[in-house]
Design a binder for these strands. Structure first.
Length: 354
DNA sequence: AAAAACGGCAACCGCGCAGAG
DNA sequence: ACTCTGCGCGGTTGCCGTTTT
């Protein structure tokens, strides 16, 4: 018996998401939590495939997503992890705070591959080789195949899970162990993912209104997005562009936009948000995202993340000046890198310097 | 100024995995 | 043990903006 389609092909809307759809989706997830995607189109009335809903959420609306320019540290980490793990973007994303696998994949395909190709000239012997997407492992370990990469990742995961289990800090949930909860949230999040609605509850230890906080960042995304959208009503009317593209558009100010933004701030409880400098570039957006979140909020978001936010003080506490001690994971990474004659330094917000 | 080429990114597609029954 | 179902992942496509000719 053939596999049934995930959704009816007829009557299912495709293409860019509109702000209205985003609001509906975020509102629904705010109420019910992520998961049970099959039920989302039915319950929300969205003419979208369940997969489309999930993708929209995970790649764009999900809390704590950082968009825009990749830092040099992120770039180098992606390069190293791609070398280590191959095109396992989800695994790579789990090491990068606030980045989605899709984002990393796109960045690799559009930027890093070309960059590395240039560096791979015969004279650039110091640079390790990076395999083409989908062609297997790099030549730095030519004998390693797909299965071995997978095994290696599994070992990584097991190590992490073990460390988490053994970590005494893991039993507490206070500001002092914020770091460890950041670094070792992977297994926890994956384990708890079977019960999406419980995620916020688990986070409620630190915050009194978990559901609001869990999705506040999404609301920020939406409000931000709407801000741009309302500032460019012509674009919206044509409905040619995706929300993200609309988000990038910066036009002259519009009273309606302010009203709409205020309305959605009110809707999502974002009274204190400052829109004065957002929506111009994606970098600004990411900065905005950072600044608008308290350390506690970030911590809460991490609990809710599908992908763990393992590395990055900005994600963990937002204090760029704070020097973090090495975690086991970092040490392992160092070992890995050390074996490949690369240098890694992890400190402060510039957590990884290769 | 217009057309073509290029680049970036969001979204889609299809496969595989894992849990439930 | 097997089937069904939902979800996650990686590869690919298509649209739109930007740059070049």
């Amino acid at each position: 018996m053939g596999r049934p389609p995930c959704c009816d092909k007829e009557g299912v809307k495709k293409g860019p998401w509109t702000p209205e759809e985003d609001i509906i989706l975020v509102s629904y997830i705010q109420e019910h939590g992520p998961g049970n995607w099959r039920a989302v189109p039915t319950n929300t009335g969205l003419s979208r495939c369940s997969k489309s809903c999930r993708l929209r959420w995970t790649n764009y609306l999900r809390p704590g997503i950082k968009r825009g320019n990749f830092t040099e540290q992120e770039e180098k980490m992606i390069i190293h992890l791609q070398d280590l793990l191959g095109n396992r973007w989800a695994a790579i994303a789990s090491y990068l705070p606030q980045r989605t696998d899709n984002d990393i994949k796109n960045y690799w395909n559009t930027h890093l591959k070309k960059k590395l190709k240039k560096l791979q000239t015969p004279s650039s012997s110091g640079v390790c080789n990076f395999g083409e997407a989908g062609t297997g492992y790099s030549t730095s370990s030519p004998v390693r195949g797909q299965w071995e990469r997978r095994l290696q990742t599994d070992i990584h995961m097991a190590k992490r899970a073990l460390s988490e289990a053994l970590s005494p800090e893991n039993n507490n949930n206070n500001n002092n162990n914020k770091l460890s909860s950041c670094f070792f949230s992977s297994s926890t999040s994956s384990i708890s993912s079977s019960n999406p609605s419980s995620k916020c509850e688990s986070s409620s230890i630190t915050k009194p209104t978990p559901s609001t906080l869990c999705y506040a960042s999404s609301a920020e995304n939406i409000a931000r997005l709407l801000k741009g959208w309302m500032k460019n009503p012509a674009t919206n009317n044509n409905n040619k562009k995706s929300c993200s593209r609309t988000q990038k558009t910066e036009n002259s100010s519009n009273d309606n936009s302010v009203e709409m933004s205020e309305a959605f701030e009110s809707l999502f409880g974002l009274e204190s948000l400052d829109y004065s400098s957002n929506a111009t570039t994606t970098t600004t957006n990411s900065e905005f995202s950072h600044q608008s979140l308290s350390p506690e909020d970030n911590n809460v978001f991490q609990e809710d993340e599908r992908k763990p936010e393992i590395i990055g003080a900005a994600a963990c506490g937002g204090d760029d000046d704070e020097i973090m001690p090495f975690s086991l994971l970092e040490k392992w990474l160092l070992e890995e890198v050390g074996s490949q004659d690369q240098k890694v330094v992890i400190s402060g917000d510039a957590k990884l310097i290769f």
